[in-house]
Deep mutational scan, measured.
Amino acid sequence: EETGVRVELAEEDDGEKIAIKLWLRIEDIKKLKGKYKDNEAIEFSFDLERDVPEDVAQEMVESGYVCEGDHKTMAKAIKDRVSLIKRK
């Protein structure tokens, strides 16, 4: 499903790190509610043992990086990427 958002690794995952750096990349602004630039990327750290995707997305909303209306879309994108990383 195309959401307009993609999360990718910002650094090589060696399988050892607990906290990883990720990029939340805006790919299609028409599919989102907030005002973003095409190909805008937000770099953030995610602790694989402690962080919760919904909470991280909420922090982005509170910091003004993400529109409240896009919270669920961002949280799902983060959750999907993190579950792929954890499965390795």
Rank of each mutant, 00 (worst) to 15 (best):
Ala75Ile: 06
Ala41Pro: 14
Ser45Cys: 12
Glu11Val: 01
Arg81Tyr: 12
Val7Ile: 12
Gly69Met: 11
Arg25Glu: 07
Glu40Ser: 12
Val52Asp: 14
Leu48Met: 10
Leu84Glu: 11
Asp14Glu: 11
Arg6Thr: 12
Tyr65Ile: 15
Met74Ala: 09
Leu24Lys: 13
Arg6Cys: 03
Gly4Asp: 04
Asp51Ser: 09
Asp14Arg: 06
Ser83Lys: 12
Ile78Met: 06
Glu8Ala: 03
Cys67Gln: 06
Lys86Met: 04
Glu27Gln: 13
Val5Trp: 13
Ile85Met: 13
Glu54Tyr: 01
Asp28Ala: 04
Glu8Met: 06
Ser83Gln: 13
Asp13His: 10
Glu43Arg: 07
Asn39Leu: 05
Trp23Ala: 15
Ser83Val: 06
Glu11Met: 00
Val56Ser: 02
Ser63Tyr: 09
Val56Cys: 04
Gly69His: 14
Ser45Asn: 14
Arg81Gly: 11
Lys31Met: 10
Asp47Val: 00
Asp38Arg: 13
Glu40Lys: 12
Val66Gln: 03
Lys76Asn: 11
Lys31Arg: 10
Leu24Cys: 07
Arg81His: 09
Lys72Pro: 12
Ser83Leu: 06
Leu22Ser: 06
Glu11Gln: 04
Ala77Glu: 04
Trp23Cys: 15
Tyr36Lys: 09
Glu62Arg: 13
Leu22Val: 04
Arg25Pro: 14
Pro53Ala: 12
Glu59Asp: 11
Val52Phe: 07
Ile18Thr: 15
Asp13Arg: 06
Ile78Tyr: 01
Val56Glu: 05
Glu11Thr: 03
Val5Asp: 05
Ser45Val: 14
Glu54Ser: 05
Asp47Trp: 05
Ile78Asp: 00
Ala19Trp: 08
Arg87Tyr: 07
Glu27Ala: 12
Leu22Thr: 04
Lys31Gln: 07
Leu22Cys: 13
Asn39Gln: 10
Arg50Glu: 08
Lys79Val: 02
Leu24Ile: 08
Gly4Cys: 04
Arg25Cys: 10
Gly64Ser: 01
Lys30Gly: 14
Asp13Lys: 05
Met74Trp: 03
Gly64Lys: 03
Glu16Thr: 13
Ile42Phe: 11
Lys31Cys: 08
Trp23Leu: 15
Ala75Met: 11
His71Thr: 12
Pro53Glu: 05
Pro53Trp: 00
Glu59Asn: 12
Val56Gly: 00
Asp28Leu: 02
Leu48Phe: 05
Thr73Glu: 08
Lys33Val: 08
Glu62Pro: 00
Glu12Asp: 13
Arg50Leu: 02
Val66Thr: 04
Gly15Asp: 10
Gly4Gln: 04
Glu43Trp: 04
Ala75Ser: 10
Ile85Ala: 05
Asp14Gly: 08
Trp23Asp: 10
Val82Asn: 02
Lys35Ala: 10
Gly15Val: 05
Phe46Ser: 02
Tyr65Pro: 00
Asp14Met: 07
Lys21Phe: 02
Tyr65Glu: 07
Gly34Cys: 03
Ser45Tyr: 14
Arg81Pro: 01
Asp55Ile: 12
Val56Asn: 00
Glu27Ser: 13
Ser63Leu: 13
Asn39Met: 10
Asp55Lys: 14
Asp28Gln: 01
Glu62Phe: 05
Gly69Ala: 15
Met74Cys: 12
Ile78Ala: 03
Glu49Leu: 09
Tyr65Ser: 10
Lys37Cys: 08
Glu49Cys: 07
Lys37Glu: 11
Ala77Cys: 07
Ile85Ser: 00
Lys31Val: 06
Ile29Leu: 12
Asp28Glu: 04
Asp28Cys: 07
Leu32Lys: 06
Val5His: 08
Ala75Glu: 01
Lys21Ala: 03
Tyr36Gly: 06
Asp38Cys: 11
Lys86Cys: 05
Leu84Tyr: 09
Ile18His: 13
Val52Met: 09
Ser63Met: 13
Ser45Trp: 15
Ile20Asn: 08
Asp80Met: 00
Asn39Thr: 09
Phe46Met: 06
Met60Asp: 03
Asp38Ser: 13
Val52Ile: 13
Gln58Glu: 05
Glu11Asp: 11
Glu68Pro: 13
Lys37Ala: 11
Ile78Thr: 00
Val52Asn: 15
Lys86Asp: 06
Leu9Cys: 07
Lys79Gly: 11
Val5Glu: 04
Val52Thr: 15
Asp38Ala: 14
Glu16Cys: 12
Val5Phe: 15
Leu24His: 06
Arg6Tyr: 05
Glu16Asp: 10
Ile85Trp: 04
Met60Pro: 02
Ser83Tyr: 03
Glu40Arg: 11
His71Trp: 13
Val66Ala: 03
Val66Ile: 14
Gln58Ser: 10
Val66Arg: 00
Ile85Phe: 10
Val7Trp: 10
Lys79Met: 07
Glu27Cys: 15
Leu48Arg: 02
Phe46Asn: 02
Met60Ile: 04
Ala19Leu: 15
Lys86Trp: 02
Lys30Cys: 09
Tyr65Cys: 10
Tyr36Pro: 03
Tyr65Trp: 11
Glu68Thr: 05
Lys72His: 12
Phe44Asn: 00
Asp38Asn: 13
Arg25Tyr: 13
Ser83Thr: 12
Lys79Asp: 10
Lys37Phe: 04
Ala19Asp: 11
Glu12Trp: 03
Asp70Trp: 02
Glu43Val: 05
Glu12Gly: 11
Asp47Thr: 01
Trp23Phe: 14
Glu8Asn: 04
Tyr65Phe: 13
Glu49Asp: 12
Lys86Gly: 03
Ala57His: 05
Leu48Gln: 04
Glu68Val: 07
Ala41Tyr: 13
Lys72Asp: 14
Asp80Gly: 01
Gly34His: 02
Gly64Ile: 00
Arg87Lys: 12
Cys67Thr: 07
Gly4Leu: 02
Ala75Asn: 06
Gly34Leu: 04
Glu12Met: 11
Gly64Asn: 02
Gly34Tyr: 06
Lys35Val: 11
Leu32Met: 11
Ser83Trp: 03
Glu27Tyr: 13
Pro53Ser: 03
Gln58Pro: 00
Tyr36Asp: 07
Gly69Cys: 14
Ser63Ala: 15
Val5Asn: 09
Ala75Thr: 10
Arg81Ile: 04
Gly34Ser: 03
Glu11Lys: 07
Glu59Gly: 11
Ile85Thr: 03
Pro53Thr: 02
Lys30Arg: 13
Glu16Gly: 11
Val61Thr: 03
Leu32Gln: 06
Ala19Thr: 14
Glu8Tyr: 07
Leu9Trp: 09
Glu59Gln: 14
Val66Trp: 01
Tyr36Ser: 05
Lys17Cys: 08
Asp38Gly: 12
Ala10Cys: 06
Asp55Gly: 07
Glu43His: 07
Ile42His: 06
Glu68Ala: 14
Gly69Tyr: 09
Trp23Val: 15
Glu59Phe: 07
Leu84Trp: 08
Ile42Arg: 03
Val61His: 01
Glu8Arg: 03
Glu59His: 11
Ala41Lys: 15
Asp28Met: 00
Arg87Gly: 05
Leu22Pro: 09
Thr3Asn: 11
Glu27Thr: 15
Val61Arg: 01
Val82Arg: 00
Leu24Asn: 07
Leu24Ala: 12
Lys21Trp: 00
Glu40Ala: 13
Lys86Glu: 07
Gly34Asn: 02
Tyr36Asn: 06
Ala75Leu: 09
Lys35Cys: 12
Ala57Trp: 01
Asp13Thr: 06
Glu16Trp: 00
Leu22Ala: 09
Phe46Leu: 02
Asp38Ile: 12
Trp23Asn: 14
Asp13Cys: 08
Ile29Phe: 12
Ser45Gln: 13
Glu62Cys: 08
Ala57Gly: 00
Ala57Gln: 00
Leu9Phe: 11
Gly34Gln: 05
Lys30Trp: 03
